[in-house]
Computed example of a mutant assay.
Amino acid sequence: MQAVIIAGGKGTRLRPLTYGCPKPMLPLLDRPFLEWMIERCRTAGITDILLNVHYQAQQVQSYFEDGDRFGVKIRYIEESTPLDTAGAIKLAEPYFTGESLLVFNADILTDLDLQAVIKFHRDRGAAATLTLTRVSDLTPFGLVELGDDSQVLAFREKPTPEQAVVFMEKGIDTINAGTYVLEPRIFDSYVVGEPLSFERVVFPGVLEQGYKMMGFIWDGYWLDLGTPEKYCQAHQDILEGRMPYDLAATATSPAPGVWVARTATVDPAARLIAPCYVGDRAAVGTDAHIPANTVVGANSIVNRPISAGIYSQGSILI
């Protein structure tokens, strides 16, 4: 199986954080989010990765190179102009081996069991499997309607509040969760180099062509990182244990819920209140007070009480 990660977007909803950094390279507890995604692929046994890039592509390429130091093989699919979500996949077609494709949007934080969704797809002989999640407020999202056998029946536009009530009563409450298992043949009829949307063209086309499309519902953790508020929430959810994340891979814990990167220095007199995180090469001084739910980013210097929040790399609070 091959993985395809769609990571070329500008991240406009995350501005100003993405003015100088591509969205998938924003740090999640000091590791680029994209590094976490690649590690997930490797852990699931998928080491052939096609990585779509566009906005500030050089940052991504210079960091990951050919993927060797991450235990994978990475090949880059660079868009000269944005081709929408599925257009980027079609551009990668020369690298397809004929195996199934595990496709990710590079802005979704989830504990989705990748092996489970791959098995589900294979066992049902699907041409496409969409992972879905349930939400309490349907109005911001397009909906995916399933039959009793988990086969996708239809796609619904974003509902009005009144329509949302009706859909909820009918049990139509699942949305696209941004991870797919796809057979390469579903792209055969499309033209390379032209914009192509999964939601508006490819997925409806799968149904129209009579291919089998399944929906895999995941009731675990799921978060779209597309706004600064959600980006902050992701860190808090990790610190509070709602989202599994291997903090021990990059940090030690001198006290329960307090995580300090191995290259950071913390004065014994400093007060660190769990849960919190101190990043790479950060220095926390004698007079520092780090409250709960705080992330001190890499290269920061802190020597006074601070308010809870995320502190960017290189900040100095004296």
Rank of each mutant, 00 (worst) to 15 (best):
D149P: 13
D149Q: 13
S150F: 04
S150G: 11
L153V: 08
F155N: 10
P159K: 05
P159R: 05
P159S: 09
T160E: 08
T160M: 02
P161D: 06
E162M: 08
A164R: 04
V166F: 10
V166E: 11
M168A: 13
E169K: 13
K170S: 08
T174Q: 02
T174F: 00
I175Y: 02
I175K: 02
N176K: 03
A177F: 02
G178L: 04
Y180F: 14
V181K: 01
L182W: 02
L182E: 10
L182M: 03
E183C: 13
P184N: 11
P184Y: 08
R185L: 13
R185T: 13
I186H: 07
F187K: 04
S189T: 15
S189R: 15
Y190K: 07
V191I: 15
G193P: 04
E194M: 13
E194W: 07
L196C: 03
F198M: 09
E199N: 12
E199P: 00
E199V: 14
R200W: 03
V201A: 14
V201K: 15
F203R: 07
F203K: 07
P204V: 03
P204M: 04
G205L: 09
G205E: 11
V206D: 05
V206Q: 00
V206N: 05
L207M: 04
L207A: 06
L207Q: 06
E208I: 15
Q209H: 08
Q209D: 12
G210C: 02
Y211A: 14
M214T: 04
M214A: 05
F216I: 05
F216L: 05
D219I: 05
Y221Q: 00
Y221E: 02
D224Q: 01
D224R: 01
L225C: 00
G226M: 03
T227N: 01
T227H: 02
P228M: 04
Y231I: 03
C232T: 07
Q233E: 04
A234K: 02
Q236L: 06
D237A: 10
D237L: 07
D237I: 09
I238W: 05
E240H: 11
G241F: 03
R242C: 12
Y245E: 12
Y245G: 14
L247G: 09
A249N: 12
A249F: 05
T250G: 12
T250A: 15
A251R: 01
A251I: 06
T252S: 15
S253H: 01
P254H: 04
P254L: 08
A255E: 11
A255P: 11
P256S: 09
P256I: 08
P256C: 09
G257P: 12
G257Y: 00
